[in-house]
Design a protein around this nucleic acid. Structure first.
Lengths: 221, 221
DNA sequence: CTTTAAACTTAGGTATTCCTAACTTAATAA
DNA sequence: TTATTAAGTTAGGAATACCTAAGTTTAAAG
């Protein structure tokens, strides 16, 4: 069983790998985890020896199947805790991540299955991210599009939010945006590519940058 | 903030100190935590330097106020988790301890207060042990007596169980003993000082040794 | 009061995970 | 193609927490 640090590295590499454009570098991992490149270089070599990733010096890395399985195991724990903290304990969108970040390393398989059962075997976490099952399989989710691609005049349901910062999550909460919330696209300003959406009775202008964090599915209504 | 290991040592010393007869020795702590005496000796010196305990070489140790505060802080987290795991997630008496032992080190003050609130600011954990409040104050509990001292013919309510082993806790569950359960003392055998109690419709003979783990308050009925 | 055994500490060593500084390799721009 | 810079690795070191083996102190028995 990997240590807490190793789990953090493996998870970070998994997440960096999800961008298919480029391979994962020492610097990427070091930045993400806020440790030195030296520490990363060492750890990557250790994880390579232990079979969690393939690694050629100076050439970047990629997780082995074993590494991916481990990453999904950690991610499962993280997302189940997030959902639990929000739905059961009433933590806010901006609070769940930090707590889950700690708990994900201190939870037995036994306990995670109990939590999963309590929650009714959920498929997504509070951000709409899929929760891997206990075998490491990610559930298939319907396609969704970022707000930038939503069409003016149509109704949409919010199904995914990228948690980029606490500030942003608090802002979303403030304006009434929550998972599965219905939204109408009022208009788009070509001036700055921002989108005006209606949430309940209020309208908000969402900048292009923020739009890229919000994902919707069109609602037939 | 102490590390996980330090918290474990401080908690162990606190628990050993609760026996007022004798002072806490290196060997006591080493046995309790199942580490070498050498490791204990080192750690005790480190904790002494850091103000968590008073220590004179070869002479035993005692926690400072700071040390006691830290111990109670860990114990609070442990007991709140135990209650939560049992009452909310439905874990059994024999399962909660091991899980809480891990979680107690990975829970922020913020989260513990949320759990405490969710549980309605409970005073006792699933074993009837008092839960320190956030300032480290232990609630006053009514006096109780071990089964050995309960009088034949009287009715009692189970208010505390010493968790000596998973096996024992499973046995208690099996015979229907749970916290606040009503029990009638049927008789006591002077031959081996065992006690026969009635739980619901069934009677059980409880050995002297097991009796010392069960604590009751007389019920007026 | 001395011997002996138990209790305790120190010495020396290992593993993990981090650091800075120095050095090496690879990629890029002239 | 070579010089420069960015990326990556190694060297050397620190903190934590453990170990075994050896040495020291205390307490208890004779």
């Amino acid at each position: 069983m990997p240590t807490i640090s190793k789990e953090d590295y493996i998870k970070a590499i998994y997440q960096l790998e999800s961008d298919p454009d480029k391979s994962v570098s020492t610097t990427d991992v070091a930045n993400k985890l806020e440790v030195s490149k030296a520490a990363t270089s060492e750890m990557v070599q250790r994880l390579s020896e232990q079979g969690f990733l393939n690694y050629e010096k100076y050439r970047g890395m990629s997780l082995t199947d074993e590494g991916k399985k481990t990453a999904l195991h950690v991610i499962r724990r993280h997302r189940i805790w997030e959902l639990f903290l929000m739905d059961v304990l009433g933590l806010s969108w901006s609070e769940v991540h930090a707590e889950a970040e700690i708990l994900e390393h201190s939870t037995s398989d036994f306990l995670i299955e109990k939590l999963d059962e309590y929650l009714g075997h959920p498929k997504v976490d509070p951000h709409g991210e899929p929760i891997p099952d206990k075998y490491g399989n990610l559930p298939e989710l319907p396609d969704c599009v970022s707000l930038q691609l939503c069409e003016v005049g149509k109704n949409y349901r919010l199904v995914k939010v990228i948690d980029s910062s606490k500030e942003l999550m608090n802002y979303f909460t403030e304006i009434g945006l929550s998972l599965n919330r219905m939204v109408m696209v009022v208009s788009r300003l070509s001036y700055d590519n921002s989108t005006i959406i209606q949430v309940g009775n209020d309208s908000f202008n969402i900048s292009e940058k923020i739009s890229s964090n919000l994902f919707f599915i069109e609602a037939v209504k």
